[in-house]
């Protein structure tokens, strides 16, 4: 994965100035502003807030057991709005912001493609349809919670949904396979959070400085 060799970032630096001198519209210039050089190669052209809203709304309805893997599937696999590595970087950044990774990454992807209104559209699409649905489900559940089939279905859905997260985690680890530093940190976090179940604040306070130091040392 490229981010482990920052100096390999090549080309594209002058895209912003080129866009200006070639007389592109202001909208296009804005869009390019939010895109990191070297992270193009996607079909991010002409993505409107409406398209973002509809895309995110479509996964809001099906994202059982958490929408995180679905957002990645939509943005990277289905629509190619972001490259996998850019998505992973945005995702990592969002994990350290309040409100959680799913919401944060949607704000960033929407904003990168269509500015402020894009962010708003992505979040509305992600949250509004399931919010309506969940209130309806609450009423439905009150009436049918005793049915065995309903409970069996929900139990099986939960297991399959866990599989979605497993796959997403493995997909994100794969590009790190040649970096012992990154793999060691992944392992420490998995043990601390998944097996020892330490509070998140502790994990961040101890591992973040260590990880920064390790990244610094490897960079030299």
């Amino acid at each position: 994965m490229r981010p482990f060799h920052p100096r390999a970032l090549a080309g594209g630096w002058s895209r912003r100035t080129m866009a200006r001198s070639r007389g592109h519209g202001l909208g296009e210039y804005r869009k390019m502003q939010h895109q990191m050089p070297g992270e193009a190669a996607t079909s991010a052209e002409g993505v409107t807030p409406l398209k973002l809203f509809l895309g995110f709304a479509s996964i809001g309805f099906v994202g059982f057991g958490g929408v995180m893997p679905w957002v990645r599937w939509l943005v990277v696999d289905r629509k190619s709005w972001c490259s996998a590595e850019e998505f992973d970087n945005l995702f990592a950044l969002a994990s350290f912001l309040p409100g959680g990774n799913v919401l944060g990454v949607s704000v960033m992807v929407g904003g990168r493609l269509a500015g402020r209104r894009g962010s708003l559209a992505a979040v509305l699409g992600l949250v509004a349809p399931p919010a309506v649905l969940v209130c309806l489900m609450a009423e439905l559940y009150r009436r049918h919670q005793h049915l065995e089939a309903v409970q069996g279905m929900i139990g099986a859905l939960a297991s399959a949904a866990a599989g979605l997260i497993v796959a997403m985690g493995l997909r994100m680890v794969w590009p790190m396979r040649r970096s012992p530093r990154a793999l060691a940190i992944v392992l420490v976090v998995v043990v601390a959070a998944g097996l020892l179940r330490l509070p998140l604040v502790w994990i961040l306070l101890t591992i973040l400085p260590a990880s920064l130091l390790a990244a610094r040392l490897v960079a030299r």
């Binding site: 482990f4 920052p6 990592a92 994990s95 350290f96 790190m176 976090v189 959070a193 920064l212």
Partner: peptide, 20 residues
């Protein structure tokens, strides 16, 4: 970015273990 990515991935895998 290089420092936080493995932590985020570790947290995802931990979530995967807990959910499973």
């Amino acid at each position: 970015e290089r420092a936080i990515l493995p932590i985020a991935v570790g947290l995802i895998l931990a979530t995967a273990i807990l959910l499973t």
